[in-house]
Every structure is written in C-alpha cells, then in structure tokens.
C-alpha cells in the first residue's frame, strides 16, 4: 500500500450470537478512496459495514480510523455516516428537519444551521423540497435526502448500503454520477456494499470481493474483471466456463482432458468468458444444444467432452442450429489463471 491506511480492520471477527459472520478479516482503506464490498447475500459484507459504523460490536479484532482505535467507540461518536438501503428517513420530520437532525444534536441553530442544511439540500438538488415530508418524495429523492443528511455531518467515512439496488435503470445512472461527484467534491472516503458486480465495477476505485465471511479478492475493477483470483470471483464477474487443473490437465465432467497448449504450472484452474471461446476451428468437437440471438451477438450452448460450454460470437458470423457439430478451441493464452479453485 502506497499511502498510509485511513481506515483499517485488523483480525476482525464478527458474530450474531453463536453464528460467526466474518472471521479474521484484515483490510485497509486509504483516505478518499471509493471502495465496494461485493459479494452474494450472507457473505458478511453488510455485517462488516455495520461494524465499521459501530452498530455491531466485534467479537475480536480492531478497527482504527484516522489514527485512532475506534473499536470501542460508540456509534454516535465515530464520525461515520451511513446511507441505509431503505434510506431510514424520519417520517414525522420534513426534509429540512431530517437533514438538520444531526446538526441540531451538535448544537447548531439559527442561521448557521439553516445555511448548512440549505447547502446540503442544494448539493443534492432538493432545495425546493425542504418543506415536504419523506412520504411525499420519490425513492430517488428520498435517497438523496438520506445522502445529504449524512454528508452535512462531514463524516470521515460514508457507508452506503446497496445504494443503487432500489432505483430504476435511469435513476441508477443518475445516482452513480451523483455519488462520484460527491466523492470528488468532498474527498470523503466511501464504502458501499453491493451484490451487483456491474455496480461495483462502474463505481469503485477498489473492490473487495467477499465470500463466507472472508475476503476472496481485493483489486481494482480491472483486476477483478480481467484477473479473478478464484473460481468464485471468476463466476461472479461472468466467466462462465471454469475448469480446475489436476495433474497438468483440465478436469472436466468426463474426466481430465489435455488441451492443445501446455497449461501454466502456477494455476489451480482456468476460466474463459463465452467470448473467449474460439468457435469454428480448433482441436475439439462439440454439439450445439441451444442457440440464442441477442442483437449484437449469438450465444451457443455446446455439449462437449469437457461438459457444457458457453460460447459467444459476433452476430455477423453464420448461425448454427441445434444439433450441428462444431469445432472449437479454448485458447490458453486468453484464459484467466485462477490462483484458487473453490
């Protein structure tokens, strides 16, 4: 890590009763970074986020923020903001009072309070909605109120729980831009939790992929997308043809198979996206079981000696119907080399 850690988790173990949700997690995040916690439900990403917020006491381990150990610091004294998935706006208060809530607790009042709240509402484009109640706003507007409510507190870290998942496609794009802008303008360190790889890839500086309460891989979106470290990550980011390497050969449904090119020694498995499969030439034969035209491409499902295989080619290429036998190749140089096979 080039610059010192701003937020660091050391050997963090989190549990609900006897159920361990996160085990011995180590992670450090730089100031101003935009980090995504990515993983399927139950992987521990939300649990980890809640422990950073102070809503869940760790069973063991340490959390430090901006040079101070905050493991035992109460949630209301941490300077950590959280935008809830459901937004959690206070239904009895107006938009203005929602945003003013934390500032009032800080002892602000009068014109200072007003100008801070106004600035917060202005930054999310909701100035004219100040007098409304949350129930009178759309989901996207409610989320922006929640964002403003957290941001006016000038938190050291802003946490966001599934920030885009409740929005429709157009709003999602808008909110994504909004979050990037807020992050750029304020330089706040942001962590968001998501189960959507597209969301993580498009928004984050760095992605932490989690599985079963542990970190599976940390990397830039390019790293994660192009060089998945494990079969799980590969599957998560759209590599649909994933094979383990056993004794120098690919393990397939009908037993091990040798590819034309020698396999790398340092890999536990290889993975190909459907696009990486060469169709029409190569040492292997497969039978088309299904074909789908999706506008710009054609997808094929092949029955092969390696088992079922997914291939994708340009729609300009001639179509093959079900039952056709096709030659294909799995080019080793294109494959993602997996460090771990799980």
């Amino acid at each position: 890590m080039s610059s010192p850690a701003f937020l660091s988790l050391e050997k963090l173990t989190l549990a609900y009763g006897d159920t361990v949700a996160v085990k011995d997690l180590d992670l450090s995040i730089r100031q101003g970074e935009l980090v995504a916690f990515l993983g399927p439900s139950g992987c521990g990403k939300t649990t980890t986020m809640r422990s950073i917020a102070g809503l869940l006491k760790p069973q063991s381990g340490r959390i430090s923020l901006d040079g101070a150990d905050i493991t035992r610091v109460a949630a209301n004294k941490r300077s950590v903001g959280l935008v809830f998935q459901s937004y959690a706006l206070f239904p009895h208060l107006t938009v203005f009072e929602n945003v003013a809530f934390g500032l009032r607790l800080k002892g602000l009042s009068g014109t200072e309070l007003e100008s801070r709240v106004d600035a917060g509402l202005k930054s999310v484009g909701l100035t004219s909605f100040a007098a409304r109640k949350p129930a009178e706003l759309s989901g996207g507007q409610q989320q922006r109120v929640a964002l403003a409510r957290s941001m006016v507190m000038e938190p050291k870290v802003l946490l966001l729980d599934e920030p885009l998942s409740n929005l429709d496609a157009r709003l999602r794009l808008e909110m994504r831009a909004e979050l990037q802008r807020v992050q750029k303008e304020t330089g706040v360190t942001m962590i968001f939790v998501t189960h959507d790889q597209g969301e993580a890839l498009s928004l984050a500086d760095r992605i932490v992929v989690m599985l079963n309460g542990a970190i599976e891989q940390i990397g830039t979106p390019e790293d994660i997308y192009n060089r998945p470290a494990s079969a799980f990550v590969a599957d998560f980011v759209g590599f649909e043809n994933i094979f383990a390497i056993e004794n120098g050969r690919l393990r397939a449904g009908n037993g091990p198979i040798a590819l034309a090119m020698p396999l790398p020694h340092d890999a536990a498995g290889l993975a190909w996206r459907p696009r990486m499969v060469t169709l029409g030439s190569g040492p292997f034969q497969g039978t088309v079981r299904g074909a789908a035209f999706s506008g710009s491409t054609r997808e094929y499902l092949l029955d092969t000696p390696l088992g079922a295989l997914k291939a994708e080619v340009d729609a300009a290429a001639p179509a093959h119907s079900a039952g056709t036998t096709l030659a294909f190749d799995l080019p080793v140089e294109k494959a993602a080399k997996l460090e771990r096979f799980n």
Partner: peptide, 19 residues
C-alpha cells in the same frame, strides 16, 4: 409498522439510544 433502522440512523447522526 415503524422501521427500526430509523433509530440506527438517529444514533449515527449523533443521538444516544435513549435519545
């Protein structure tokens, strides 16, 4: 009928649990 996460939201904005 009331979501419990609004209490957590209040705590993260500086309120005590009782508050």
């Amino acid at each position: 009928n009331l979501r419990s996460d609004i209490e957590e939201a209040a705590v993260l904005l500086g309120s005590s649990r009782a508050g």
